[in-house]
Amino acid sequence: MFLHACPCGYYGDSTHQCTCSPPQIKKYLSKISGPLLDRIDMHIEVFPVQCSELQAEQGSKSSLELKQNVNAARMIQLQRYEKEGILFNSQLKPKLMKKYCKIGNAEKELLETAFNKLGLSARAYNRIIKLSRTIADLNGCERIQVSHIAEAIQYRNLDRKFWNP
């Protein structure tokens, strides 16, 4: 799902001037409710890219490497949940989260800090943990680490940035 933060699409964009009035922005944002955003696992702010950046040689992974990485993570999940009747980390219910998403004290502390500072809901808290499990799988890690939690938290910022300032 792709959402703009205003009717013209430039609110918050550093390269273009937003032409919307504050009431227009507020009305536009009010069409998307917090509970709806809570049901979206990842909120990523995407900025325009310069042509020179596209033409520059990248040191990133190729599409084939990314596909292989995702397929390996999918196999980990299929094997992990073969007796549970689910296929994906996103399908974990609280009981199974306790079994498969164990986190240490440092991870719990980071989650608590984010929960309190960002005003996250219980649903968002659980989605962060499940997304952290997926990030750990993509990195080939059996245990969820602080870096996985931190990455998952950063994918939950738009609902607080635009919808609940």
Rank of each mutant, 00 (worst) to 15 (best):
116 N>G: 06
147 S>K: 06
45 E>Q: 11
41 D>P: 00
66 L>S: 07
4 H>W: 05
16 H>F: 06
46 V>E: 04
70 V>K: 08
116 N>L: 14
116 N>S: 12
4 H>L: 03
45 E>Y: 07
39 R>D: 11
159 D>W: 13
60 S>G: 02
72 A>E: 06
124 A>E: 10
32 I>K: 05
134 T>P: 11
81 Y>Q: 06
76 I>D: 00
28 Y>R: 02
34 G>E: 09
31 K>G: 09
63 S>A: 12
32 I>A: 07
71 N>S: 01
163 W>S: 12
101 C>I: 10
85 G>F: 00
120 L>H: 08
162 F>M: 09
100 Y>C: 05
37 L>N: 07
122 A>Y: 01
66 L>E: 03
40 I>A: 09
1 M>L: 14
160 R>G: 11
155 Y>A: 14
32 I>W: 12
151 E>L: 07
15 T>S: 11
152 A>D: 14
42 M>I: 15
14 S>V: 04
50 Q>W: 09
52 S>Q: 03
93 K>S: 13
9 G>P: 06
120 L>W: 12
5 A>M: 14
162 F>K: 08
21 S>M: 11
161 K>C: 07
109 E>P: 00
133 R>E: 10
105 N>S: 12
102 K>L: 11
77 Q>G: 01
1 M>Q: 07
19 T>V: 06
120 L>T: 05
77 Q>K: 02
136 A>S: 12
109 E>K: 14
149 I>C: 04
113 T>E: 15
62 S>A: 01
84 E>D: 15
109 E>W: 07
91 Q>S: 05
3 L>H: 15
75 M>E: 13
47 F>T: 10
111 L>S: 03
8 C>Q: 02
74 R>M: 02
8 C>G: 13
46 V>A: 14
145 Q>R: 11
48 P>M: 06
92 L>E: 06
82 E>I: 00
1 M>I: 13
7 P>H: 07
135 I>K: 10
49 V>G: 04
39 R>I: 08
132 S>W: 09
7 P>W: 00
37 L>I: 07
102 K>N: 15
16 H>N: 07
113 T>H: 06
14 S>Q: 09
81 Y>E: 00
90 S>G: 03
55 Q>L: 06
71 N>V: 03
110 L>E: 08
28 Y>H: 09
44 I>V: 14
126 N>R: 00
19 T>Y: 03
74 R>S: 02
13 D>H: 02
14 S>E: 13
163 W>N: 15
5 A>W: 04
161 K>Y: 03
39 R>K: 11
4 H>P: 10
85 G>K: 01
34 G>S: 10
165 P>W: 06
126 N>V: 05
19 T>F: 01
33 S>Q: 09
117 K>Y: 02
59 G>N: 01
14 S>Y: 03
104 G>K: 14
129 I>W: 10
145 Q>A: 08
53 E>W: 00
71 N>G: 00
99 K>D: 07
118 L>V: 12
12 G>M: 04
75 M>F: 00
159 D>R: 13
80 R>E: 04
64 L>A: 03
105 N>D: 15
133 R>D: 10
49 V>E: 07
45 E>G: 10
16 H>W: 01
45 E>T: 14
118 L>S: 12
113 T>Q: 08
90 S>Y: 02
88 F>N: 04
135 I>P: 01
89 N>M: 12
51 C>A: 09
130 K>A: 04
162 F>Y: 15
28 Y>L: 03
13 D>N: 13
72 A>L: 00
